[in-house]
Computed example of a mutant assay.
Amino acid sequence: MGDNGRMADPVLAPRSPFVGLVVTWAVAAVGAILIGVVAPDDRLMTWYAIGFGICVLLSFAVQLFRGETRGFILRVSAGSLGALLVMGIVSAGFGIAALFGA
């Protein structure tokens, strides 16, 4: 018998990669809104940076929990980039509201 190369186990029921992304993006949206409402004005950007760091760690943990090795880095980076965009849009909304005195 010869070596036929490496064999991979077939994925029987792959999970959707979008669930982990949506979870990360939803946490980013809720976190950004909470930061915009609760954080003092002079420390706002510090708290947004901390919130984004938590979202990056959450994205990593969610994709690690998924257990799929293919596309791991792509999914983590997509979750992190999406969280950055969501938090940026929410913070821009709070900034515009602050300009108009709302």
Rank of each mutant, 00 (worst) to 15 (best):
F94Y: 13
R75M: 13
A98L: 05
A28M: 07
I33V: 15
V86F: 02
V11G: 01
G71R: 02
A28R: 07
N4S: 14
A61N: 11
V19A: 06
L84D: 00
S59I: 02
A29P: 07
N4C: 11
A29R: 12
V62K: 07
S91V: 00
V19F: 10
L58C: 07
A102F: 12
A97E: 13
G36Q: 01
R66N: 10
V62I: 14
L64A: 14
P17A: 12
S16A: 12
D3Y: 13
M87N: 02
P10N: 08
A8Y: 15
V11I: 15
L58W: 00
V76E: 04
A39L: 00
T24M: 02
F94N: 06
A39F: 02
L81K: 03
D9G: 11
V27M: 11
A83C: 04
D42M: 03
R15C: 11
A102S: 05
F94E: 13
V56Y: 05
D41V: 06
A13K: 14
M45C: 00
I89V: 14
A26I: 11
M1N: 11
L74G: 08
G93P: 06
G71Y: 03
L81N: 01
I33T: 07
F100N: 12
G51A: 10
A8L: 15
Y48G: 03
L12A: 14
L34E: 06
T24K: 02
L74A: 10
T24R: 00
D42I: 05
G82Q: 04
G2P: 15
W25R: 05
V76T: 09
G67N: 09
I96D: 05
T24H: 02
Q63K: 03
V90T: 06
L85K: 04
I89Y: 10
T24A: 05
I33A: 12
G2A: 15
Y48D: 01
L74T: 08
G67A: 10
W25T: 05
M87K: 02
Q63M: 12
A102R: 09
G2Y: 15
F65T: 13
T69W: 02
V22D: 01
D9C: 12
D9P: 10
A61K: 14
V90G: 01
S77A: 11
S59W: 04
M87C: 04
F60I: 08
Q63L: 10
V90Q: 03
R66C: 04
W25G: 00
P10F: 07
A39V: 04
M87E: 01
F52K: 00
L21Q: 07
R70W: 08
W47V: 07
I73W: 07
N4E: 14
